[in-house]
Structures are given as C-alpha cells and as structure tokens.
Design a protein around this nucleic acid. Sequence first.
DNA 1: CGTTATTTAAAACGCTTGTTTAAACTGAGC
DNA 2: GCTCAGTTTAAACAAGCGTTTTAAATAACG
Lengths: 208, 208
Amino acid sequence: MSTKNKILDAAESLFADKGFNGTSLREITSQAEVNLAAVNYHFGSKKELIKAVMSRYMNELSPRLESALVDVCNNDELTLVDVFSAFIEPLLSLNDFKDNGTSNFLQLLGRGYTDSQGFLRWFLTTQYPGVIDNFVLAVQKAYPELGAEEMFWRLHFTMGTVVFTMSSSDALIDIAKSDFERDLQISDVIRNVIPYVAAGVGAPMPVL
Amino acid sequence: MSTKNKILDAAESLFADKGFNGTSLREITSQAEVNLAAVNYHFGSKKELIKAVMSRYMNELSPRLESALVDVCNNDELTLVDVFSAFIEPLLSLNDFKDNGTSNFLQLLGRGYTDSQGFLRWFLTTQYPGVIDNFVLAVQKAYPELGAEEMFWRLHFTMGTVVFTMSSSDALIDIAKSDFERDLQISDVIRNVIPYVAAGVGAPMPVL
DNA sequence: CGTTATTTAAAACGCTTGTTTAAACTGAGC
DNA sequence: GCTCAGTTTAAACAAGCGTTTTAAATAACG
C-alpha cells in the first residue's frame, strides 16, 4: 500500500475517533507507520489532508446518492420513509469500498460540523451541491405542503439527528447490547433512525 | 465582580463559541482581564473550570426542569408536544439568570457531547439523573405504546437533534436571516424544533 | 552504469498549550 | 503598625503542535 493511502486510512479512523483538532499529525503518521514529514510532502498541510479524507468518501458516495434520490422520485406515491430509505444502500455500499466505511464516514461528517468552525460544512455544500439539491427535490415531492422555510429547518434538524447519532453510534450500540442484549450493527442504527427523521420532517405544519 | 465570576463568564462565552478544546486559558483570562494563573488558582485545572461552567447552569436549570416535567404529567391528555414544551420555560428562564443564558447553555451542551470524548456526557448523566428520569416518565405517559428499546433510541435521536441544532444555532440563525430575511432568536429555534422531535418520538412503531 | 527525480528519514524550528513557581501585593484582625 | 492568609502578578516550565529543512536512501530512465 502506498504511503499516501496509509496516511489516509490512519487519518480517517483517528479523525473519526477524536475529531480533527483532537488528532495530531504525529498520531496519524505513527499509526500509519510513515514519517511525520510525509503528510506535508504528500498533502501540503493538515487542512488539505482533512479535505482529502472527506473527498475520498464523497467521490464514491455522491454519485450513488444522487442517482438513488433521482430513482426514488419516480415513485408516484412517494413517502418520506422512501426518501430517507434511499440513503441506506449507498451508505452501506461504503462498507464494500472500505471496512467500516459507513461508520467512519458518518462520524467524520459529524466531526466536520462541530470541529473547525464549520469549514467542512462549507466544503461539502460547495463541492457536492448535487446531493442536497436532489434530496430537497425528493422531500418536496413526498411532502409538497412543506414550505421552504420549514424545509430548511427540518433538514438541518435531520442532519443533526443523523450526524450526532452516527458520531456516537459505537457508544449507542454498546449500551443497546448491555441494556437489551441486542447485537446491533451500524445498519440497524440507520434503519432505526429512518422512521424518526421521516416523522420529524413529516410533522404537521405548526400554526404560528 | 469577583475574579472567579469574571473567569466563569468569559470561559462560558468562549467555550460556547469555539468549543472546550478550541479555547485556550490565555484567551479566557485575557477576555476576563485577569491573570493567567488565576484559573489554576481558583479552579485547579481547565477540566474543573469546564465542570464549574456547566454546574452553574445545571444547578439553576435542573430543579426547574424536574418540576416542569412533574407538573406536565398531571395533564390527563398528555401529548408529546406538551412534554417537550415543558422545556421551553425553564430554558428561557436562563436568560433572566444570565444574558443569552439559553443560547450559551445549549451550545455548551452540544460542545460537551462532541468535544472531549464524552466526559461531559458522563458528568451530566451521573450528576443530574433526575431530569432524565422524569423526562422518560413523561414520555411514557404521553406515548405508552412506545417500548423501552424504541424509547432508548428515540431519546438519543432527540438529544442529537437538539444538541446539534443548538450548537450550530448561531450559524442557522444567520442563514435564516440571509435566506428568508427573518430575524430569529434562540427561542424561535426551540419552538421550531419541538414539532419535529415530538413527531419523531411519536412515530409509529416500525414493524420489524 | 550514471544521472536525475522522487521519496523517506531525523532533526530542528517557532509557536502555543496547560501548569507551576516564586515573588509581590492586598486587606482584615490583633 | 505588623502579621499573615488570601490573591494577584510576571516569568518560566515542559510538552505538544504543524511545519520546514537538510541529508540520505530509493526508484526511474537514458
């Protein structure tokens, strides 16, 4: 395996565990068993390394997500559960692309929203706008009465639910095991969260 | 104002803005206009300072929350919206206790769940278990069909929604202003999120 | 084989971090 | 007025950070 990929793999798992700010280049290069200077040689800076880690996933995920969302729009009796379920297969396909890919990616997404004052939010929304656009279209078709402003809020709430859940999914799976003697996978967590966010987005419009 | 309180106030607003790890003691003491060593003199360590900032809020908030949740359980036709609405008044009362208290507290809560590998989660759940217990009781009364396992998941999803939303509430309010020309407050965000989480927790049980 | 470009290696740089030290100051109480 | 605990101060500490530099090792190619 190339030095570049060893760095990407190590950075990915450490970033997911301890956040971007909380992970040092020395930890990364030590786990990757490469020299410290290799990061700056191959990527230029830590910030560029973060972008590279995220891009590796997004380049794999975003076309699959977009086409899944376009597909689901052909459904004539589209429900919000259908829309959110469209995420399952593309997300789980990350596990083929890389072991534990789903978990790491969603955790990284969560980190990006809270670490580093939202520069990753800017990065994703500007670099991969197609996913968001198609998602909004699908939600609009499934729930046409939802106004633009409510849509804005509820999609952010949903992002929060998913991102937060996934960034602590390991802990949640542990608790589920000890409290309910359930051996769950990340896919079970995803399937659990879908009825929740679908109901949240589909909540009746409040009378203000 | 005492040095101790000057430190607490400065730490609070900086922690809310930039996270616990992202804020240095030098920034805090500089904004508080006190000497750097004063933090370690009065609080012992940065970690203890974080706990002190959170405790100042929780000691104010937790009895009000508990009694509001007990009160709402007297409602014979209790809905989930009622349960979540019980949080509004205690949270907004933090603004009397301190300017911008609600905003700061909820942002701090969000930080605590993502920064510092969840030590704050442990701190809150072990130090203030009464709030959680009463909350679970209220949800059970409003939605008795909800099983213990579903309850567990949905309460965590809700925690995620609220915590994530509030930790990025400033950014969301900014976007709402530029996109919809709305001048919103933190209380508007709270009122917006309630129908969402109530619908999420109240989602029909999935048929597995 | 020899030369050139690429990659690794170790060390150091300048800076920031949380914490500690030791001295100076402050203000009651005797 | 002196004492002494309680505070504040400036300076320094050791450790960790991202990054840069210099030299050695490796690979590619004519």
